[in-house]
């Protein structure tokens, strides 16, 4: 606390008194408080990890799937509590001038706006016109898109023959393990082992048809979907948009 020297000379020259705010003492936080905060943080870490483990155990043992939103809300609530503890005590916002806390709050508001409005668009893009949601064709041919060799890329330049990356990787495995039926059998055995290890139980088609996902391609329907014949394309377009006629929906885009 010794580093606050007398600065009375300024005060008498400070008719507005706005300088007085900068004279607040800097609190030296008690080590017991810091230790208690650390223990609380560790406790919450154990709690949230245990909750996640419990969720898996329940799913495995009782075949009861706890809805995703519960774990999201629970884990994020604990994260917020932990973050509050860190910022309040370790970062000393509790003892600090309010200005620093206000700065941080503004930052969080900006963050909320950013996440909120982006999600507002992406989450409700096909609310009115279905075609804006598109059809799920995740994974193009993973080429260096464009009309050249793409030499200015540090990443791989593989030709996936119009498969998505997941299918391509699977096919590669099958080919490396004898190809054809032999490779497929090897892959199926390995896949079953893998699923058991990670507790993933899948019935029906192994590659998810993603019915639960929001169907989409991006802004332009079928842009990357070369296998869709032209007439099918048009048929889809005319169905989109509920009661709107063909002229209406084609005129929009």
């Amino acid at each position: 606390m010794t580093h606050h020297q007398a600065q009375t000379a300024i005060d008498e020259l400070d008719p507005h008194g706005f300088q007085s705010e900068s004279h607040g003492d800097h609190v030296i936080v008690d080590w017991r408080v810091l230790l208690a905060v650390l223990l609380a943080l560790l406790f919450f870490t154990v709690l949230t990890t245990a909750a996640s483990a419990a969720e898996r155990w329940i799913a495995h043992e009782f075949m009861v799937t706890i809805p995703g939103w519960i774990s999201v809300v629970g884990a994020l609530t604990i994260a917020v509590i932990k973050a509050t503890l860190v910022s309040m005590y370790f970062m000393q916002l509790r003892y600090d001038k309010p200005l620093n806390a206000i700065v941080f709050v503004f930052c969080l508001v900006a963050l909320a706006i950013f996440l909120g409005f982006s999600a507002l668009d992406l989450g409700a893009r096909d609310l009115v016109y279905d075609y804006k949601g598109g059809v799920l064709t995740v994974g193009g041919n993973a080429q260096s898109v464009g009309q050249t060799g793409g030499h200015a890329r540090l990443g791989p330049r593989v030709n996936t023959m119009n498969r998505n990356m997941v299918e391509y990787a699977r096919q590669k495995f099958i080919d490396e393990h004898g190809g054809g039926e032999v490779g497929l059998a090897a892959w199926k055995a390995e896949m079953a082992r893998h699923d058991a290890k990670h507790g993933v139980v899948h019935e029906g088609p192994v590659l998810s048809d993603a019915n639960r996902s929001i169907r989409r391609t991006g802004i332009t329907p079928h842009l990357y979907d070369e296998s869709v014949p032209a007439d099918e394309h048009a048929a889809h377009e005319s169905n989109a948009g509920g009661g709107h006629g063909d002229a209406d929906s084609s005129g929009d885009h």
């Binding site: 982006s118 992406l122 993973a142 260096s144 890329r153 990443g155 991006g218 842009l223």
Partner: peptide, 23 residues
Amino acid sequence: ERLFRVGIFDASMGGDPVLYQHF
């Protein structure tokens, strides 16, 4: 995205070009 093709803004990988515009 440009150097490695990670796919966040690339529709052929499931990303969204319009997300780039949001950002």
